[in-house]
Design a binder for these strands. Structure first.
Length: 427
RNA sequence: GGAGAGGUGGCCGAGUGGCUUAAGGCACAGGUUUGCUAAACCUGCGUAGGGUCACACCUACCGAGGGUUCGAAUCCCUCCCUCUCCGCCA
């Protein structure tokens, strides 16, 4: 959510910035509602002041034995008028809030302007794409041949867009989770957290998934709880409704969680393999930063995610998303894309964003610069470090051998019982 | 699932209809006193919105939402959460 006072004072700048993001958010409506709201507030607060004063005199009159009926009737009329205006005020505020929830974040000035992903800009590439003297297989064939992935049985159990891992596949997924957590906690200074996988409505409003994107979520029946689409939701909300000291910043948390997404509207897209699942594992990085340093923090966080790819020796590139492709809540996003040789393309494996104060304002995550100063919203950031299923895909495809086996990246062997290679197993 | 207790400011805690603009204490900040430290004393110390050039000032907030009343932290209703015990359970 943007700062309403900022919109009021910079309406033209906001309109211009929203145009770059292809947003038709109702700024004029917001300005009108805001003016109406303040006018109604002044009126109702004046009346309340009058009521408070006159009510007090009734108490005094009763003590001294005077007749209070006329005065009571008068205050009752004021009360009725107050209710009337408050009703109006409530309606204005609810409309204003709805309109404010329609407004996306504004892009940072360094973000390239563009409408679609075509306008995203490659910042850097890393690593050498592997050369094969055979036709590399897609991971769904590799995994099925090795007996470590089973999509048919997963469909029997749960349906489309679910996977069943066996043996070394399951272990490799677990090894990746553990490797990533060990790296981020041991070398990058993150505090590991294991949050709830179900969250309430307030948490999702806080990070911006609600009210606009409810159809992307899995909701439980009979409880107002949702399966998390990303650990960003529970972890960012750790400090909701809190006021932190400036010296505490930055705070850095990492969390492994499964993620659940309905993938509504992606029918026919990535129907094969592990790329787009209703349930997938992710290690998430979340940082709470001082506003003056949040863009340095974004570079730091992105480097932490890139380090995972580099340790695994997976070729990737970093892309900065253009204004039109940046997600609703983000001010600036880097995508990390890993090379998938079977498809001969780079595929998103991490998304690292600075939300500035957008989430902090919604979730009321604030900090105090110094004692006695007013609390201000801080800046939140997060990034995948990394999407685990897609990392497993990248390993299978990049490390595959002519005989159908897969070499285990060196940093993972220690987690795989010291073995160097995954070979076919029976299931 | 059953029974009970409870939710008041950073913390403790008083408060069953108007003298509460939420007592008092702790913690914190500034000051006075003091050989130093400590203590004592004085002052300040919540959040949000409105308002102002800036102050002043105003309004709201005692878990949330309704209701009764001239007036609600206080009375009534609904809901949420926490704790204890029992049952069930990994």
């Amino acid at each position: 959510m943007l700062d309403l006072a900022f919109i009021r004072e910079n309406a033209d700048r906001v309109r211009e910035a929203l145009a770059k993001r292809k947003s038709d958010a109702p700024i004029d409506t917001i300005l009108q509602l805001d003016a109406d709201r303040r006018a109604a507030l002044v009126e109702v607060e004046g009346l309340k002041k009058e009521r408070n004063e006159k009510s007090k005199t009734i108490g005094q009159l009763i003590q001294s034995g005077g007749d209070v009926q006329a005065r009571k009737d008068e205050v009752k009329r004021i009360g009725a008028r107050i209710s009337e205006i408050e009703e109006k005020l409530e309606s204005i505020e609810s409309k204003l809030q709805d309109a404010m929830f329609e407004v996306p974040n504004l892009s940072h000035e360094s973000v390239p302007v563009g409408d679609t992903e075509e306008a995203n800009v490659e910042i850097a590439t890393w690593g050498d794409k592997p050369e094969f003297d055979f036709e590399p297989l897609a991971h769904w064939d590799l995994g099925t041949n090795l007996g470590i992935l089973d999509f048919e049985r997963a469909a029997k159990i749960a349906g489309a867009r679910f996977a069943l891992y066996f043996g070394d596949g399951a272990r490799l997924e677990r090894a990746l989770i553990q490797f990533m957590l060990d790296l981020h906690t041991g070398e990058h200074g993150y505090t590991e957290t294991l949050p709830p996988f179900l969250v309430n409505r307030d948490a999702l409003i806080g990070t911006g998934q609600l009210p606009k994107f409810e159809e992307d979520l899995f909701k439980t029946d009979g409880h107002d709880l949702f399966l998390i689409p990303t650990a960003e939701v529970p972890v960012t909300n750790i400090h909701a409704d809190e006021i932190l000291d400036a010296e505490q910043l930055p705070l850095a948390y990492c969390a492994y969680t499964p993620c659940f997404r309905s993938e509504a509207g992606s029918y026919g897209k990535d129907v094969r393999g592990l790329i787009r699942q209703h349930q997938f594992n992710k290690v998430e990085l979340v940082r709470f930063a001082h506003p003056d340093h949040s863009y340095d923090e974004l570079e730091t966080l992105t480097r932490h995610a890139e380090t995972v790819l580099e340790r695994l020796e997976l070729p990737y590139r970093r892309v900065v998303l253009c204004t039109g492709d940046t997600s609703f809540t983000s001010a600036k996003t880097y995508d990390l894309e890993v090379w998938l040789p079977a498809q001969r393309l780079y595929r998103e494996i991490s998304s690292c964003s600075n939300f500035e104060a957008f989430q902090a304002r919604r979730a009321k995550i604030r900090y105090r610069e110094a004692k006695g100063e007013k609390p201000r919203p801080l800046h939140t950031l997060n990034g995948s470090g990394l999407a685990v299923g897609r990392t497993l895909v990248a390993i299978l495809e990049n490390y595959q051998q002519a005989d159908g086996s897969v070499v285990i990246p060196e940093v993972l062997r220690h987690y795989m019982g010291g073995r160097e290679r995954i070979t076919a197993q029976s299931t």
